[in-house]
């Protein structure tokens, strides 16, 4: 069982959270001018790294807020969690 530190509520069991996947995927600023390949990249392609991964998590059974998590995908160790700030993704 992972213990995850919600930046607002503190450490809670993983069952209170849902994982929102890769962080830092920015919505295209000019959707009308995107090629099909660029859309595919934005919608579907993922880094899926083996090792350090920047993720978004939601404290869905708690304060219901989104926050950032840096987690290792092999050891599952969480290096840090942080509040999200506009324009900043890590």
């Amino acid at each position: 069982m992972l213990l995850i530190k919600c930046p607002w509520c503190g450490e809670r069991a993983e069952t209170e959270f849902s994982c929102g996947g890769e962080a830092g995927i920015t919505r295209p600023a000019n959707p009308d001018s995107l090629t099909d390949a660029e859309w595919a990249d934005y919608l579907f392609m993922r880094k899926n790294p083996r090792g350090a991964h920047a993720e978004l998590w939601n404290h869905s059974l708690g304060c219901r807020r989104w926050f950032g998590v840096e987690r290792d995908t092999v050891t599952y160790r969480i290096a840090k969690t942080c509040k999200l700030s506009p324009g900043k993704t890590d």
């Binding site: 069982m1 992972l2 069952t15 994982c19 996947g21 991964h53 995908t73 092999v74 050891t75």
Partner: peptide
Amino acid sequence: DAYTGYGQRGSFP
């Protein structure tokens, strides 16, 4: 398991 992972083990929940 809900999150991505390369460890060949899963979570208790």
